[in-house]
Design a protein around this nucleic acid. Structure first.
Lengths: 66, 66
DNA sequence: AGAAAATGTCATATATAATTTACATATGCA
DNA sequence: TGCATATGTAAATTATATATGACATTTTCT
């Protein structure tokens, strides 16, 4: 599940830990999502998107069509 | 997690069971998602969206703002 | 009306997302 | 240099998405 979380978070100048705290998960969970290694829940995707001022599509839709 | 899966599926004239089979889950899982009672995985949301020719945002983004 | 298909729903089981703890490596800054 | 912060990663545990099977209810069609 590749996505645009990492690049978007860095542009927003916040750390994994800050994002994690704001969306209510741990730093490790954010790290694994950014790495594309797992399959987060919809609720978590929505929370991350809102926190980064993006939509689901902008962060998670067809990012893996490299 | 309210969403537009049910109305979109019905417009596409397919049953829960057909959609379930095409995205690789059971009929019950589709039923619960349509009911808004749980929190599907991102992979499953993407599979459903592609099967219904919609994007994530169209099916799952800010549907619950009524 | 009646039959068949579609959907709702429940209980139990399994797979996996997410947590916790811990340690290693990197990166930036005094 | 060195210290503090940020990130990568791994094992064990917990929480929850999803499966399975079964039965009830609703919808659709003749």
């Amino acid at each position: 599940m590749k996505n645009n979380v990492k690049i978007t978070r860095i542009k927003a100048s916040i750390t994994q830990e800050q994002l994690a705290k704001r969306v209510g998960v741990t730093r490790q969970t954010i790290g694994l999502i950014e790495k594309g290694e797992y399959n987060p829940s919809l609720q978590l995707c929505v929370a991350i998107a809102k926190e980064l001022n993006k939509t689901l599509d902008e962060l998670f839709w067809e990012v893996d069509t490299e």
